[in-house]
Computed example of a mutant assay.
Amino acid sequence: MTLATPATSTPATSTRRPAPARGAGLGLLLALLATVVWSGSFVATRGLADSVPPVQAVFWRWVIALLAVAPFAARPFWRQRAALRRHLGFTALAALFGVTLYNTLVHQAGLTTSATNMGMIMAAAPVIMAVYARLGGERLGARRLLGLAVAVLGVLLLVGRGSLTIDLGPGDLWMFAAALSFASYSALLKRRPAGLDGLAFLFATFVLGAVMLAPAYAVSLAVQGGFPVTPGTVGPLLYIGVFSSAVAFFAWNKAVALIGAARAGVVYYLQPVCVALLSYALLGERLGPAGGACMALILGGVALSSSR
Protein backbone atom coordinates (compact mmCIF):
# COMPACT_ATOMS: atom_id res chain seq x y z
CA MET A 1 0.00 0.00 0.00
CA THR A 2 1.35 3.43 -0.91
CA LEU A 3 0.17 6.49 0.96
CA ALA A 4 0.42 9.72 -0.96
CA THR A 5 1.16 12.94 0.90
CA PRO A 6 -1.99 15.02 1.45
CA ALA A 7 -2.17 18.42 -0.14
CA THR A 8 -1.25 21.19 2.28
CA SER A 9 -4.26 23.14 3.46
CA THR A 10 -4.44 26.88 3.10
CA PRO A 11 -3.55 29.13 6.03
CA ALA A 12 -6.39 30.34 8.22
CA THR A 13 -6.02 33.90 6.90
CA SER A 14 -6.49 32.98 3.21
CA THR A 15 -9.75 32.69 1.29
CA ARG A 16 -10.51 29.09 0.43
CA ARG A 17 -11.34 28.59 -3.25
CA PRO A 18 -13.72 25.84 -4.36
CA ALA A 19 -11.92 22.60 -5.16
CA PRO A 20 -11.62 21.77 -8.88
CA ALA A 21 -14.16 19.21 -10.07
CA ARG A 22 -11.57 16.42 -10.14
CA GLY A 23 -10.25 17.30 -6.67
CA ALA A 24 -13.78 17.62 -5.31
CA GLY A 25 -14.70 14.17 -6.65
CA LEU A 26 -11.59 12.62 -5.08
CA GLY A 27 -12.33 14.41 -1.82
CA LEU A 28 -15.88 13.05 -1.71
CA LEU A 29 -14.64 9.51 -2.45
CA LEU A 30 -12.03 9.71 0.32
CA ALA A 31 -14.61 11.04 2.77
CA LEU A 32 -16.88 8.14 1.80
CA LEU A 33 -14.05 5.63 2.28
CA ALA A 34 -13.32 6.97 5.77
CA THR A 35 -17.03 6.95 6.64
CA VAL A 36 -17.54 3.33 5.58
CA VAL A 37 -14.42 2.14 7.42
CA TRP A 38 -15.39 4.04 10.58
CA SER A 39 -18.84 2.49 10.40
CA GLY A 40 -17.22 -0.92 10.83
CA SER A 41 -15.26 0.40 13.80
CA PHE A 42 -18.45 1.05 15.78
CA VAL A 43 -19.43 -2.60 15.31
CA ALA A 44 -15.92 -3.72 16.33
CA THR A 45 -15.96 -1.38 19.34
CA ARG A 46 -19.32 -2.75 20.48
CA GLY A 47 -17.93 -6.28 20.13
CA LEU A 48 -14.95 -5.42 22.37
CA ALA A 49 -17.06 -3.80 25.10
CA ASP A 50 -17.42 -6.96 27.19
CA SER A 51 -13.80 -8.09 27.02
CA VAL A 52 -11.43 -5.09 26.70
CA PRO A 53 -11.56 -1.99 28.97
CA PRO A 54 -12.11 1.19 26.88
CA VAL A 55 -8.80 2.90 27.67
CA GLN A 56 -6.82 -0.27 26.95
CA ALA A 57 -8.64 -0.77 23.65
CA VAL A 58 -7.92 2.81 22.58
CA PHE A 59 -4.27 2.65 23.63
CA TRP A 60 -3.59 -0.53 21.66
CA ARG A 61 -5.58 0.88 18.74
CA TRP A 62 -3.05 3.69 18.37
CA VAL A 63 -0.02 1.50 19.00
CA ILE A 64 -1.19 -0.70 16.11
CA ALA A 65 -1.92 2.40 13.99
CA LEU A 66 1.60 3.73 14.62
CA LEU A 67 3.14 0.44 13.51
CA ALA A 68 0.96 0.45 10.37
CA VAL A 69 1.81 4.04 9.39
CA ALA A 70 5.50 4.09 10.42
CA PRO A 71 6.92 2.57 7.18
CA PHE A 72 5.32 5.39 5.17
CA ALA A 73 5.44 8.27 7.64
CA ALA A 74 8.71 7.91 9.55
CA ARG A 75 10.83 9.61 6.87
CA PRO A 76 8.48 12.61 6.31
CA PHE A 77 8.10 12.90 10.09
CA TRP A 78 11.89 13.12 10.54
CA ARG A 79 12.28 15.61 7.68
CA GLN A 80 9.62 17.87 9.19
CA ARG A 81 10.70 17.62 12.82
CA ALA A 82 11.59 21.33 12.96
CA ALA A 83 8.18 22.39 11.57
CA LEU A 84 6.42 20.01 13.95
CA ARG A 85 8.29 21.51 16.90
CA ARG A 86 7.22 25.01 15.79
CA HIS A 87 3.59 23.91 15.63
CA LEU A 88 3.66 21.54 18.60
CA GLY A 89 0.75 23.27 20.34
CA PHE A 90 -1.53 22.98 17.31
CA THR A 91 -0.53 19.35 16.68
CA ALA A 92 -1.06 18.42 20.33
CA LEU A 93 -4.54 20.01 20.31
CA ALA A 94 -5.48 18.04 17.17
CA ALA A 95 -4.15 14.85 18.80
CA LEU A 96 -6.16 15.55 21.95
CA PHE A 97 -9.46 15.96 20.09
CA GLY A 98 -8.97 13.47 17.25
CA VAL A 99 -6.95 10.69 18.86
CA THR A 100 -7.17 10.76 22.66
CA LEU A 101 -10.63 12.10 23.52
CA TYR A 102 -12.71 11.07 20.50
CA ASN A 103 -11.78 7.41 20.51
CA THR A 104 -11.87 7.04 24.30
CA LEU A 105 -15.38 8.51 24.36
CA VAL A 106 -16.50 6.15 21.58
CA HIS A 107 -15.24 3.08 23.43
CA GLN A 108 -16.78 4.34 26.67
CA ALA A 109 -20.13 4.77 24.91
CA GLY A 110 -19.90 1.21 23.57
CA LEU A 111 -20.29 -0.12 27.11
CA THR A 112 -23.90 1.05 27.45
CA THR A 113 -25.38 1.73 24.01
CA SER A 114 -25.83 -0.17 20.76
CA ALA A 115 -23.59 0.12 17.71
CA THR A 116 -26.61 1.43 15.76
CA ASN A 117 -27.14 4.27 18.24
CA MET A 118 -23.42 5.05 18.21
CA GLY A 119 -23.43 5.51 14.45
CA MET A 120 -26.64 7.53 14.44
CA ILE A 121 -25.56 9.91 17.18
CA MET A 122 -22.19 10.49 15.50
CA ALA A 123 -24.19 12.01 12.67
CA ALA A 124 -24.41 15.09 14.91
CA ALA A 125 -20.76 15.77 14.03
CA PRO A 126 -21.47 17.24 10.55
CA VAL A 127 -23.89 19.76 12.08
CA ILE A 128 -21.12 20.97 14.40
CA MET A 129 -18.67 21.00 11.45
CA ALA A 130 -21.08 23.18 9.48
CA VAL A 131 -21.40 25.58 12.43
CA TYR A 132 -17.60 25.80 12.70
CA ALA A 133 -17.34 26.41 8.93
CA ARG A 134 -19.94 29.20 9.07
CA LEU A 135 -18.19 30.83 12.04
CA GLY A 136 -14.99 30.67 10.00
CA GLY A 137 -16.60 32.66 7.19
CA GLU A 138 -17.43 29.82 4.80
CA ARG A 139 -20.66 30.17 2.82
CA LEU A 140 -22.64 26.95 2.94
CA GLY A 141 -25.27 27.74 0.30
CA ALA A 142 -29.03 27.14 0.33
CA ARG A 143 -28.82 23.69 -1.29
CA ARG A 144 -26.29 22.39 1.19
CA LEU A 145 -28.25 23.79 4.13
CA LEU A 146 -31.46 22.19 2.84
CA GLY A 147 -29.71 18.84 2.41
CA LEU A 148 -28.24 19.21 5.88
CA ALA A 149 -31.70 19.81 7.34
CA VAL A 150 -33.18 16.79 5.54
CA ALA A 151 -30.33 14.55 6.74
CA VAL A 152 -30.67 15.87 10.31
CA LEU A 153 -34.39 15.10 10.25
CA GLY A 154 -33.64 11.56 9.08
CA VAL A 155 -31.09 11.05 11.86
CA LEU A 156 -33.43 12.43 14.55
CA LEU A 157 -36.25 10.17 13.41
CA LEU A 158 -33.86 7.23 13.26
CA VAL A 159 -32.65 7.83 16.83
CA GLY A 160 -36.22 8.37 18.05
CA ARG A 161 -37.55 5.23 16.33
CA GLY A 162 -39.89 7.23 14.08
CA SER A 163 -40.56 10.01 16.61
CA LEU A 164 -38.84 13.29 17.36
CA THR A 165 -39.03 12.44 21.07
CA ILE A 166 -35.58 11.13 21.96
CA ASP A 167 -34.73 9.27 25.17
CA LEU A 168 -30.97 9.29 25.69
CA GLY A 169 -29.03 6.97 27.99
CA PRO A 170 -25.50 7.44 29.41
CA GLY A 171 -23.86 5.79 26.40
CA ASP A 172 -25.75 8.11 24.04
CA LEU A 173 -24.47 11.16 25.94
CA TRP A 174 -20.91 9.82 25.71
CA MET A 175 -21.42 9.58 21.94
CA PHE A 176 -22.59 13.19 21.69
CA ALA A 177 -19.38 14.20 23.47
CA ALA A 178 -17.44 12.09 20.95
CA ALA A 179 -19.24 13.85 18.07
CA LEU A 180 -18.23 17.25 19.48
CA SER A 181 -14.62 16.11 19.83
CA PHE A 182 -14.46 14.74 16.27
CA ALA A 183 -16.05 17.88 14.79
CA SER A 184 -13.50 20.02 16.64
CA TYR A 185 -10.69 17.86 15.23
CA SER A 186 -12.08 18.23 11.69
CA ALA A 187 -12.35 22.01 12.09
CA LEU A 188 -8.72 22.14 13.20
CA LEU A 189 -7.60 20.22 10.11
CA LYS A 190 -8.67 23.09 7.87
CA ARG A 191 -6.28 25.36 9.75
CA ARG A 192 -3.27 23.06 9.53
CA PRO A 193 -0.24 25.34 9.12
CA ALA A 194 0.97 25.78 5.55
CA GLY A 195 4.09 23.75 4.80
CA LEU A 196 3.31 21.08 7.37
CA ASP A 197 3.26 17.75 5.54
CA GLY A 198 -0.01 15.87 5.95
CA LEU A 199 1.55 12.45 6.55
CA ALA A 200 4.07 13.79 9.05
CA PHE A 201 1.27 15.65 10.83
CA LEU A 202 -0.88 12.50 10.96
CA PHE A 203 1.97 10.44 12.41
CA ALA A 204 2.72 13.15 14.98
CA THR A 205 -0.91 13.18 16.18
CA PHE A 206 -0.80 9.40 16.55
CA VAL A 207 2.40 9.61 18.63
CA LEU A 208 1.12 12.44 20.84
CA GLY A 209 -2.29 10.79 21.25
CA ALA A 210 -0.71 7.51 22.39
CA VAL A 211 1.56 9.39 24.83
CA MET A 212 -1.46 11.19 26.31
CA LEU A 213 -3.25 7.86 26.75
CA ALA A 214 -0.27 6.09 28.39
CA PRO A 215 -0.95 7.24 32.01
CA ALA A 216 -4.64 6.28 31.80
CA TYR A 217 -3.64 2.93 30.27
CA ALA A 218 -1.26 2.25 33.18
CA VAL A 219 -4.00 3.04 35.72
CA SER A 220 -6.52 0.84 33.88
CA LEU A 221 -4.03 -2.02 33.76
CA ALA A 222 -3.34 -1.75 37.49
CA VAL A 223 -7.02 -1.47 38.50
CA GLN A 224 -8.82 -3.63 35.93
CA GLY A 225 -6.08 -6.01 34.84
CA GLY A 226 -5.32 -6.99 31.27
CA PHE A 227 -7.63 -8.56 28.70
CA PRO A 228 -7.55 -12.04 27.14
CA VAL A 229 -5.51 -12.25 23.95
CA THR A 230 -7.81 -14.26 21.68
CA PRO A 231 -8.96 -14.01 18.05
CA GLY A 232 -12.10 -12.31 19.40
CA THR A 233 -10.04 -9.43 20.84
CA VAL A 234 -7.03 -9.29 18.50
CA GLY A 235 -9.12 -9.28 15.29
CA PRO A 236 -11.24 -6.21 16.18
CA LEU A 237 -8.17 -4.41 17.55
CA LEU A 238 -6.30 -4.98 14.28
CA TYR A 239 -9.29 -3.66 12.33
CA ILE A 240 -9.68 -0.48 14.37
CA GLY A 241 -5.90 0.00 14.53
CA VAL A 242 -5.01 -0.50 10.86
CA PHE A 243 -8.19 0.43 9.00
CA SER A 244 -10.23 2.68 11.32
CA SER A 245 -7.17 4.58 12.54
CA ALA A 246 -4.38 4.54 9.94
CA VAL A 247 -6.34 4.24 6.68
CA ALA A 248 -9.52 6.11 7.63
CA PHE A 249 -7.79 9.05 9.34
CA PHE A 250 -5.44 9.46 6.37
CA ALA A 251 -8.39 9.43 3.95
CA TRP A 252 -10.42 11.86 6.08
CA ASN A 253 -7.53 14.33 6.49
CA LYS A 254 -6.96 14.29 2.73
CA ALA A 255 -10.68 14.77 2.06
CA VAL A 256 -10.88 17.77 4.41
CA ALA A 257 -7.82 19.27 2.69
CA LEU A 258 -9.53 18.91 -0.70
CA ILE A 259 -13.15 19.86 -0.01
CA GLY A 260 -13.30 21.31 3.51
CA ALA A 261 -14.71 19.94 6.77
CA ALA A 262 -18.31 21.06 6.13
CA ARG A 263 -18.66 19.30 2.79
CA ALA A 264 -16.83 16.19 3.98
CA GLY A 265 -19.17 16.25 6.97
CA VAL A 266 -22.18 15.91 4.66
CA VAL A 267 -20.81 12.58 3.39
CA TYR A 268 -20.37 11.56 7.02
CA TYR A 269 -24.17 11.41 7.27
CA LEU A 270 -23.99 8.08 5.47
CA GLN A 271 -22.43 6.58 8.57
CA PRO A 272 -25.71 5.79 10.38
CA VAL A 273 -26.86 3.89 7.29
CA CYS A 274 -23.63 1.89 7.08
CA VAL A 275 -23.56 1.18 10.83
CA ALA A 276 -27.21 0.07 10.85
CA LEU A 277 -26.62 -2.36 7.97
CA LEU A 278 -23.42 -3.77 9.50
CA SER A 279 -25.05 -4.03 12.95
CA TYR A 280 -27.92 -5.99 11.45
CA ALA A 281 -25.60 -8.31 9.51
CA LEU A 282 -23.01 -8.90 12.25
CA LEU A 283 -24.72 -8.21 15.59
CA GLY A 284 -28.37 -8.92 14.80
CA GLU A 285 -29.50 -5.38 15.73
CA ARG A 286 -32.77 -4.85 13.83
CA LEU A 287 -33.90 -1.51 12.43
CA GLY A 288 -37.38 -2.10 10.91
CA PRO A 289 -39.37 -0.36 8.11
CA ALA A 290 -39.35 3.03 9.86
CA GLY A 291 -35.57 2.86 9.98
CA GLY A 292 -35.47 2.22 6.24
CA ALA A 293 -37.56 5.35 5.62
CA CYS A 294 -35.23 7.39 7.82
CA MET A 295 -32.25 6.04 5.89
CA ALA A 296 -33.89 7.27 2.68
CA LEU A 297 -34.13 10.76 4.20
CA ILE A 298 -30.46 10.67 5.18
CA LEU A 299 -29.37 9.49 1.74
CA GLY A 300 -31.54 12.12 0.05
CA GLY A 301 -30.09 14.87 2.22
CA VAL A 302 -26.53 13.73 1.49
CA ALA A 303 -27.22 13.61 -2.27
CA LEU A 304 -28.77 17.09 -2.20
CA SER A 305 -25.94 18.64 -0.20
CA SER A 306 -23.19 16.96 -2.23
CA SER A 307 -24.56 17.83 -5.69
CA ARG A 308 -22.85 20.66 -7.57
Rank of each mutant, 00 (worst) to 15 (best):
P228L: 12
L188M: 09
L283R: 08
A216I: 00
A7I: 13
L101N: 04
R79G: 12
P272T: 02
A74L: 15
A177Q: 10
S305N: 15
A94Q: 14
S307Q: 11
L196Q: 02
L67Q: 03
A290S: 05
P54M: 04
F90M: 14
Y280F: 13
R134H: 11
L111I: 12
T35Y: 03
Y239A: 14
L93W: 13
G260M: 02
G284E: 00
G136E: 06
A92T: 05
S181H: 08
P228V: 01
P53Y: 03
I166P: 08
D167K: 08
L66F: 07
Y280V: 07
T35D: 04
R286H: 14
P11R: 01
R144W: 05
Y268R: 04
G226A: 06
V267F: 07
L26P: 05
S41V: 02
R22G: 13
L270T: 00
R22L: 11
A251C: 14
A149Q: 00
G241A: 09
N103G: 02
L299P: 00
H107S: 15
W60F: 04
V55Q: 03
K190F: 06
A187N: 09
S181C: 11
Y132E: 01
F203Y: 12
S9W: 10
T233R: 09
A115F: 10
G23W: 13
L101Y: 05
Y239T: 03
L202W: 11
T15M: 06
A248G: 12
A12S: 13
L105F: 02
V159F: 00
Y269T: 00
D172I: 10
L208K: 14
R286K: 07
L238H: 03
L105A: 06
A31P: 04
A31Y: 06
D197I: 05
L188E: 07
V267Y: 02
L26A: 13
M295F: 04
N253G: 14
G136A: 04
T15F: 00
R144C: 02
S14Q: 09
D167A: 12
L202I: 00
S184D: 06
N253D: 12
V223R: 14
T2M: 10
A187T: 07
A73I: 10
A290G: 10
P228S: 14
G232P: 09
T230S: 13
L189E: 03
P289E: 00
L30C: 08
F250Q: 08
A264G: 15
G47V: 05
G288C: 04
A109M: 03
S51P: 08
V150C: 01
S39D: 05
T112K: 08
V131Y: 06
G284C: 05
S39N: 07
T165H: 10
P53T: 02
V63E: 07
A12I: 00
V223T: 06
A194W: 00
A83E: 13
T45I: 11
M118S: 15
L67P: 10
S51N: 03
V43L: 06
S305F: 03
G235M: 14
S305H: 04
I240D: 11
L168N: 12
V69I: 13
L237I: 10
W60H: 12
F90D: 08
G235R: 11
L189P: 07
H87K: 13
L84G: 12
P11M: 02
S307Y: 14
A257E: 09
S163H: 06
L199Q: 01
I298N: 01
L32H: 09
G23R: 15
G198M: 03
G160L: 09
D50K: 14
L84M: 09
T2H: 04
G141N: 01
L238Y: 04
